[in-house]
């Protein structure tokens, strides 16, 4: 049997985390190819609905990454997203979905290294968790 390869959707803020991911790429840092990145203008643009929709459509994990506290281009988008994701994780736990399938990280434009590490760790963790149970539940 081939090893389970998790499918990750990444919502990356334009001003910090997407640039960080770009830096990881241009610096030829190694990280697993399991993430599909979607650029958003700010992590605050990530509605809880997007995350649930990604999980429902079969993502094994969702990474949301934004600027460090105090650095959000729109001042407070990252604070809101932090709260949203904490509340969302409570919902996931109640619904029997591992809350760790959703992850929020602060990654700046210069932290290519951190981006690569976060993705590597997340892939490892998801491999241990196994496939998203919602996939089989709702077919």
């Amino acid at each position: 049997m081939t090893e389970f390869e998790p499918n990750i959707i990444g919502f990356l803020c334009n001003w910090c985390s997407y640039a960080g991911a770009d830096l990881a790429g241009t610096s030829r840092m190694k990280y697993p190819p399991n993430i599909k990145s979607i650029r958003v203008m700010c992590s605050g643009r990530v509605d809880t609905v997007f995350i649930l929709d990604a999980l429902k459509k079969g993502a094994d994990g969702v990474l949301v990454a934004g600027c460090h506290p105090g650095d959000c281009h729109y001042q407070s988008g990252n604070y809101k997203t932090n709260r949203r994701i904490k509340l969302l994780k409570k919902l996931l736990g109640d619904m029997g979905v591992e809350p760790r399938r959703v992850r929020f990280e602060y990654i700046s434009a210069s932290e290519g290294q951190k981006f690569a590490k976060v993705v590597t760790d997340f892939v490892d963790e998801l491999k241990k968790m196994g496939p998203n149970p919602l996939k089989t539940l709702q077919d």
Partner: peptide, 29 residues
């Protein structure tokens, strides 16, 4: 809206504890 609960979670989280949010620790959140 695709999901009433998730929409409300987003709305609520956007107005919860916004005063002084920049000085709040993660534990306080």
């Amino acid at each position: 809206s695709l999901d009433q609960g998730a929409s409300m979670i987003s709305a609520l989280a956007s107005i919860l504890g916004v005063e002084g949010e920049e000085n709040m620790t993660d534990e306080e959140v």
